[in-house]
Amino acid sequence: MTEMRRPLGPIIRRPHVLRARLLFAAQLVFTLLLAAFLIVPAGLSMLAGVTENYFIGVRSGLTLRWLAQVWELYADTILRSFVIAIATLVVTIVIGLPAAYALHRRGDRVARLVEEIITLPLAIPGLAIALALLLSYGNFSDFRRSWLFILVGHVIFTLPFMVRSIMAVLAAVNINLLDEGAASLGASPWQRFRDVIVPNVKPGLLAGSLMVVTLSLGEFNLTWMLHTPLTKTLPVGLADSYASMRLEVASAYTLVFFIMIIPLLVAMQFMAGRGGLTGGRR
């Protein structure tokens, strides 16, 4: 194990070498176990999705039969989830980008209040938001029955992530100064927005977009309450299958979800890695 020490690491004095080694090994094992706790079940579910008979185990052979069955039963939920995720993304960008910019520019008490309100859904369980929406709009039956109802829920739930991630970048690149710089060169507000603000906000926009799509694809708490039999999304279908399908089908369905979401998670990790662990530093 080639191990390098950062300043925080214990200083090794000769008699302590052994103890330090042991400590390192113990911590490593602990961390590996923790990672195993998170990863093994995910691996199991993926495996189960392509196993002929999970009760018997992999010995029973591998098959794509369950995946085919999932496609037959649930293709519409998968497509609908994509449509809703993309629509959510578009709406959150269209609302979130100008809103974040305006909030950042103003920075006064009104702006802070608006920011509070926009980010409030972060602090309220999806269930409560869904109930509130049902109570207010449940009677508009056309709206209630369309997937737009779910879209509204997803936008409310994901907008804070978009706004926050853009505002974090706005603060980090000192956008006001760049804006003034462009203004001093004669750029109109629109030109400034297009040439300076948007390009410099891109990392935040990208991170926010990944988050929004990921969350929308996986959103269950709100959607379960808002959906109708004709507007089921993937996670809703998943819950269905967990309750009523054999384990292999449920697993295959979960596998489909993993296939959709893992590239997004990886991309998010990559972005976070480039922006430092917390995304705050450059």
Partner: peptide, 21 residues
């Protein structure tokens, strides 16, 4: 990466993973 990947996993899926576990 492995330790932080479930950050955006929905609760339903996590429930299912616990069933598998």
């Amino acid at each position: 990466a492995l330790l932080t990947f479930p950050l955006a996993l929905p609760g339903v899926v996590i429930g299912f993973l616990i069933i598998l576990l």
